[in-house]
């Protein structure tokens, strides 16, 4: 822990704030939330403000929950959007699932090169083993696991794996029996919502999602209405739409 004696004590309220901020940083660093250099990273999306340090934690496991097929697709789309920022140009990411429904060519709409994804279609028995094994490999940029049940003990194992390797994990729980407590850093729930098109023209617009950040460690839960504009997340704003939607891309 920080040596509190080193911090100069002032009576002023501002100084107190400063101390608190400094101590908070110490706590974050102990909890392995890395302070990222603002100059080098680009913001992923508006939901980043909810996380400590205002940055999406990498080298951690994030949890997503969905119950309907439609929303599962929305969740996978949302994860793909985040992957786009993490993977970089050449990194491989691994999708583990028992019954794969992902259509590889569609990943291109989220800026991911589908040839850089390795799909593992494994039985339910081996799925957690495969996710853990993949999370331990530093050569992987991210791991997405699609399963239904994840106990606290299992999530703890995954968290320990990423603490060693700094790989980012996404656990997408489809139709879980209970929303039990896990050791994951955050829990998202993504739902599809109505898309909007330019000037109310007929047709389907960009993917729109209701993103609820239900739980977040050391952050503020929140909820946003987001859209994927073909290259990044942005908050839904009807006025902005009117200017920015090119007709080319209708849906992802």
């Amino acid at each position: 822990m920080a040596d509190v004696a080193e911090i100069p004590l002032f009576n002023k309220a501002e100084a107190k704030q400063e101390i608190i901020a400094k101590l908070r940083q110490e706590v974050y660093s102990l909890q392995r939330f890395k302070k990222v250099n603002d100059a080098t990273t680009h913001t992923i999306g508006p939901f980043e403000t909810a996380f400590p340090n205002q940055s999406f934690p990498t080298g951690a496991v994030h949890e997503f929950i969905s119950y309907e097929q439609e929303h599962a697709a929305a969740t996978n789309g949302f994860i793909s959007g985040i992957l786009n920022y993490l993977a970089g140009r050449s990194g491989y990411s691994i999708w583990v699932g028992s019954a794969r429904v992902i259509f590889p060519p569609a990943l291109k709409f989220f800026g991911i090169d589908p040839e850089h994804i390795i799909f593992l279609d494994v039985s339910n028995k081996n799925i957690l083993w495969a996710i853990e094994e993949a999370l331990k490999c530093q050569a992987v940029s991210a791991v997405v696991g699609i399963l239904s049940e994840l106990s606290f003990k299992e999530s703890r194992r995954l968290q320990l794996a990423v603490e060693q390797s700094h790989v980012t994990g996404f656990i997408h729980r489809y139709k879980p029996k209970t929303e039990n407590i896990t050791a994951c850093v955050s829990r998202f729930k993504i739902r599809s919502i109505h898309s909007a098109t330019l000037d109310g023209l007929p047709g389907v617009g960009y993917p729109h999602w209701q993103a609820d950040l239900v739980k977040v460690r050391n952050g503020k839960p929140g909820s946003w209405q987001l859209q994927w504009n073909g290259s990044g997340f942005e908050e839904c704003d009807t006025r902005q739409h009117i200017i920015s939607i090119p007709q080319k891309l209708k849906a992802g």
């Binding site: 789309g77 793909s80 429904v101 259509f103 060519p105 569609a106 291109k108 709409f109 891309l249």
Partner: peptide, 13 residues
């Protein structure tokens, strides 16, 4: 990869 046509992220087998 083709990007000009809309394709769904989930395709039923």
């Amino acid at each position: 990869w083709r990007e000009d046509l809309p394709r769904p992220i989930h395709l039923l087998p």
